[in-house]
Amino acid sequence: MVSGRAYVVCVYCSASTADPAHIALAARVGTEIARRGWQLVSGGGHVSMMGAVATAARAGGAQTIGVIPKHLVHKEVADVDADELVVTDTMRQRKQVMEDRADAFLTLPGGIGTLEEFFESWTGGYLGQHDKPVVVLDSDGFYDGLFRWLDELYDRKFVSQFARDRISVTTDLRSAFVALQPDDTATTREEI
């Protein structure tokens, strides 16, 4: 809980992959969000990983908030089962609503949309626009190439240590949720 309300995790992930391992990962994330009594805010689609995380969260009793731009309502099959479905005019509005509603950000495997969301939440934290946790769950090396490149940018002094420290990169579900959890629940929640 944060100030008397449920803690809200924004999950960024693919709305296009059919890879069963990644869909199962998204479902495990949704289940864990529910187990902790948290809420989910997601991209509002009911397909692929995006749909799996929301469906699993709801199945476990979590409240879900889907945020989807009008032009993706049919393409991403809007999650009409969400407890709250917010339809925006633009992608920029979608990201702003998701950021405003979230207490923390978790990035799972995804494509360019997921990467854009991750970079925007990371940059916002780096620039002091928010102090929310920014976590990447990279259980199968999906993002290895990205983080090698970011390490190179660090080595070449394009990325500071402070910026790097704004992200937690984890390789397992337990570590991801430890990095996500608010300070006031760090010692009260069971280990995964």
Score class of each variant (00 low, 15 high):
1 M>P: 15
1 M>G: 15
5 R>H: 12
6 A>D: 13
6 A>F: 03
7 Y>D: 14
7 Y>R: 14
9 V>Q: 07
11 V>Y: 13
15 A>N: 12
20 P>E: 08
20 P>H: 06
21 A>N: 06
21 A>K: 05
23 I>P: 03
23 I>F: 05
24 A>T: 07
24 A>K: 11
26 A>D: 12
28 R>T: 08
28 R>Q: 15
29 V>K: 00
30 G>L: 06
33 I>V: 13
38 W>S: 00
39 Q>Y: 05
39 Q>K: 14
40 L>S: 10
42 S>E: 12
43 G>W: 10
46 H>L: 14
46 H>S: 15
47 V>Q: 01
49 M>K: 05
50 M>H: 04
51 G>H: 13
52 A>C: 04
58 R>F: 06
58 R>E: 09
59 A>R: 10
62 A>N: 12
65 I>E: 12
66 G>W: 03
66 G>Q: 04
66 G>S: 11
70 K>D: 14
70 K>R: 15
71 H>V: 10
73 V>T: 15
76 E>S: 02
78 A>Q: 14
80 V>L: 14
81 D>S: 11
82 A>E: 04
88 T>A: 05
92 R>Y: 13
92 R>V: 12
94 R>G: 01
95 K>I: 05
95 K>D: 11
96 Q>N: 10
98 M>Y: 07
100 D>Y: 03
101 R>I: 07
102 A>P: 02
103 D>R: 08
105 F>Q: 03
107 T>R: 03
109 P>C: 09
109 P>A: 06
109 P>H: 06
110 G>L: 03
113 G>M: 01
113 G>K: 00
114 T>W: 09
114 T>C: 08
114 T>K: 07
115 L>N: 04
119 F>W: 04
120 E>W: 12
124 G>P: 01
125 G>S: 11
126 Y>I: 12
129 Q>T: 09
129 Q>K: 14
130 H>R: 08
130 H>V: 09
132 K>H: 09
133 P>N: 08
134 V>E: 02
135 V>H: 01
137 L>D: 04
137 L>N: 10
139 S>D: 07
143 Y>I: 03
148 R>G: 02
148 R>L: 09
149 W>A: 10
150 L>N: 05
150 L>P: 02
152 E>S: 12
152 E>F: 09
156 R>Y: 13
157 K>M: 13
160 S>W: 03
160 S>N: 10
162 F>D: 14
163 A>T: 13
166 R>F: 08
175 S>A: 15
178 V>P: 00
178 V>Y: 00
180 L>F: 00
180 L>E: 00
182 P>W: 05
184 D>H: 09
189 R>P: 00
189 R>N: 10
190 E>D: 15
192 I>E: 15
